[in-house]
């Protein structure tokens, strides 16, 4: 895949986007590069264009928020970036790998190794404890169960659930379940973290806590974090906000003062 470096530069220098907030934004290799990505569903009269030529760059060390109204293509775009959907046209590179060039098997392995997921509905396995749920990506990767659960326990400690390792999801509050989901997404130390509406099911206070947690434990110099959200109360936590509308990137902005406050919270 050949991505036009000039276009990337233009993207970064767009008038509504500023790069002064984080020293990490100067990372030389983009975590995600999308060029002319389109996606259509259906055919003929029922054809729907979910994405119409999206260009986007996401850098390591940043939290990028994808925002916009329902049906604007956020979920489709994040699915394509995560290697869960194939674009109809366009190129997507994640961590320098052209996803289009990967076989199905290689794509599955790539996702397993490098991408962490926080799903809107969490999708925790109800029969597994918090530690076991958080250990699942390591087990998928071939780590022995005992080691995987031990590693997951450490991550759960980091997200503040060290005392609920043996609890089943049904025994946890919504916010605690969300933290288990975050631990599960981070346990295998992915370089791209994809979060789908992580605060949608939470009240304002819990939503703030989750976003603070994501900023504190997820954002790392070599890791990019992408968050799909339409919860404008958490816009301040992002380094960049990608506004989408009708399958296109409408504009990219830097957040206001709330963002700084959010980052400064423990």
């Amino acid at each position: 895949m050949q991505l036009a470096s000039q276009q990337i530069t233009d993207f970064a220098e767009a008038p509504e986007f500023t790069t002064h907030h984080s020293p990490l934004t100067t990372h030389p290799t983009p975590a995600v590069e999308c060029r002319g990505v389109t996606k259509e569903f259906g055919a003929g009269d029922t054809r729907v264009w979910a994405l119409r030529g999206v260009d986007l760059e996401v850098r390591p060390g940043q939290m990028t928020l994808l925002v916009g109204p329902s049906g604007c293509g956020k979920t489709t775009l994040i699915s394509i970036i995560a290697g869960l959907l194939n674009p109809t046209a366009g190129d997507v590179a994640v961590l320098g790998r052209d996803l289009g060039s990967l076989s199905n098997g290689a794509l599955v392995r790539f996702r397993q190794a490098h991408i962490g997921f926080v799903f809107q509905q969490l999708n925790l396995l109800p029969a597994l404890t918090a530690a076991e749920n958080a250990a699942v990506p390591l087990i998928i990767g071939g780590r022995p169960r005992r080691q995987a659960v031990a590693a997951a326990a450490q991550v759960l400690e980091a997200v503040g659930l060290g005392d609920r390792l043996g609890a089943l999801p049904a025994q946890l509050s919504g916010g605690q379940q969300q933290r288990v989901a975050i631990a599960r997404a981070l346990v295998h130390e992915p370089r791209l973290l994809v979060c789908d509406e992580p605060t949608a099911a939470l009240d304002a206070r819990s939503g703030q806590t989750v976003m603070e947690l994501l900023r504190r434990v997820a954002v790392q110099p070599d890791r990019a974090v992408m968050v799909v959200t339409h919860d404008n109360r958490v816009f301040g936590f992002g380094d960049r906000i990608v506004h989408m509308s009708d399958g296109r990137v409408e504009r990219v902005t830097a957040p206001g003062p709330a963002r700084v406050a959010g980052r400064e919270e423990p």
């Binding site: 995560a82 869960l84 098997g105 599955v108 392995r109 790539f110 996702r111 397993q112 190794a113 991408i115 997921f117 799903f119 999708n123 699942v136 990506p137 998928i140 990767g141």
Partner: peptide, 8 residues
Amino acid sequence: SLKAMGLS
């Protein structure tokens, strides 16, 4: 979700 996380 298991599939998304890389289970074949």
